[in-house]
Design a protein around this nucleic acid. Structure first.
Length: 424
RNA sequence: GUGAUUGUAGCUCAGCUGGUUAGAGCGCCUGACUGUGACUCAGGAGGUCGCCGGUUCGAACCCGGUCAGUCACCCCA
């Protein structure tokens, strides 16, 4: 076994029938994005390393230790994308799209992060996300959250909870940072090792600590509320009013801080407890400074990313295996002559029918063929054996109703009609 | 990156304090049955017990390493 080549750690093969679930989800995603007026953007899987260093933030974990970075043969530093927002903004900048007013894009595809794998956390993961640029007002925040929530809601996920928070802008966030430093620094020695590290790097993260030692200091820490500037306060209040009016349930969670540097004001996550520690299915927020930091015009923007693996896991946990209704036709030709007549008929049926047409080419008994029809979950069987051959007929069996009909052999249109599908 | 835990057939799992030829159920193939499929019965295929090394007369079992999964931390989708 060890001599066999296996999929790299943290990656997975998606095989039938699971791949069909992926395809179905992706179709619903494309349809949802289209209904919200978003256009798909496809960007390269690898980019210049510099893009992520500047776009995601030099001191983030993603950039510091999780990127798949290498030099290509031209000695360019290349990185497999660990997220989509920076690449999408780079592409928009490159194609001068910001000069054309507000924009709405979405994306679906793989991302790569070198992390220790566990359930719901992979080195190659897939994300769906949207970016809405050009609107500074809370309507855009609402729209993006509503889109994410619609995806969750339409799948009947009752377990999911929307958490929202505001982390201020470049006026009040530095103030909050100072307030936190002033609060925690005198007790630095008493904090957990992780939090001592966070103190210098990202003090907001201390609020999220699960360590007992930090707990007392976290509960007495100043709230963002106390330093929030008026503009941010109004923005957040307006967003909440929109959510209330739309009937989208949420909780304000001051611990939602997000790990990427570019967020401003609104941040949100959709959390599910069925996923254990990897509880965030979807996370996003506003990032008004990112485009400018990449060298573009000052452009307000808001977006989110949703993890497809985690989303599918939630669906599994909530709905389990859903029994698929029978669909399709199993063509059964008993003997060489029958097969020779059936093969061209099958080809024609595959052109005419929306449902799948199955056929097995081996010499088997009728019984074995019918078992295959069951395995394929086919609704109908077309049986052509020596009797039918002699009579110039074809048996159409409804495998669910257990009824037979005999139709003239030859025209695919007759078969389609017998299957209740009008030919187009 | 830190700590813990698991690894036996395609899948789910048994396998006693180390004992010689490693099992079950499901699935798969064949037959009972060239003509009616979710049933039944009979037979069959499929394993270097994750991998490497050590201890031992003898290892699926004990020890070390390694790879992979899982859980928590970290972080995030």
């Amino acid at each position: 076994m060890s001599s066999h080549i296996t999929a790299p750690r943290g990656t997975q093969d998606i095989l039938p029938p699971t791949s069909a679930r992926w395809l179905a989800l992706e179709r619903r995603i494309h349809d949802l994005a289209r209904r919200f007026g978003y256009g798909e953007m496809r960007t390269p899987i690898f980019e210049s390393t510099e893009l992520f260093v500047r776009g995601v933030g030099e001191t983030t974990d993603i950039v510091e230790k999780e990127m798949y970075t290498f030099f290509d043969k031209g000695e360019r530093s290349i990185t497999l994308r660990p997220e989509f927002t920076a690449p999408v903004m780079r592409a928009a900048l490159e194609h001068k799209l910001f000069g054309q007013g507000p924009q709405r894009w979405y994306y679906v595809g793989p991302i790569f992060r070198y992390e220790r794998p566990q359930k719901g956390r992979y080195r190659q993961a897939h994300q769906f996300g949207v970016e809405c640029t050009g609107y500074a007002g809370p309507e855009a925040d609402f729209e993006v959250i509503a889109l994410a929530w619609e995806l969750v809601r339409s799948h009947g996920i009752e377990d999911a909870v929307l958490n929202v928070n505001t982390i201020g802008d470049d006026v009040c966030r530095p103030r909050y940072r100072e307030a936190l430093l002033a609060h925690f620094r005198p007790h630095a020695d008493e904090l957990s090792a992780d939090s001592q590290r966070r103190l210098e790097k990202n003090p907001l993260r201390i609020l999220d600590s699960k360590d007992e030692r930090d707990h007392a200091f976290v509960t007495t820490a100043p709230t963002f509320e106390s330093v929030l500037c008026d503009a941010c306060r109004e923005h957040f209040a307006a967003l909440r009013a929109y959510l209330d009016a739309a009937g989208i349930p949420y909780v304000v969670n001051p611990k939602i801080v997000r790990g990427l540097d570019y967020y401003t004001r609104t941040v949100f996550e959709i959390i599910s407890c069925v996923l254990g520690a990897q509880s965030t299915v979807c996370g996003g927020g506003r990032y008004d400074g990112l485009v400018a930091s990449l060298g573009g015009p000052p452009t307000p923007a808001v977006g989110f990313a949703l993890g497809l693996e985690r989303f599918l896991m939630m669906l599994d946990a909530l709905h389990g295996e859903v029994e698929q209704p029978r669909a399709g036709v199993q063509a059964i030709g008993l003997g060489t002559q029958a097969r020779a007549l059936l093969v061209p008929l099958v080809t024609e049926l595959r052109r005419m029918l929306a449902q799948p047409v199955f056929m097995d080419y081996d010499d088997r008994k009728l019984l074995a063929h019918l078992k295959m029809a069951d395995r394929n979950n086919a609704r109908y069987a077309l049986i052509l054996g020596s009797d039918e051959l002699a009579a110039g007929e074809l048996v159409v069996r409804d495998l669910e109703a257990r009824t037979d009909r005999r139709i003239p052999l030859g025209r695919a249109g007759d078969v389609a009609a017998a299957l209740g599908e009008e030919q187009s």
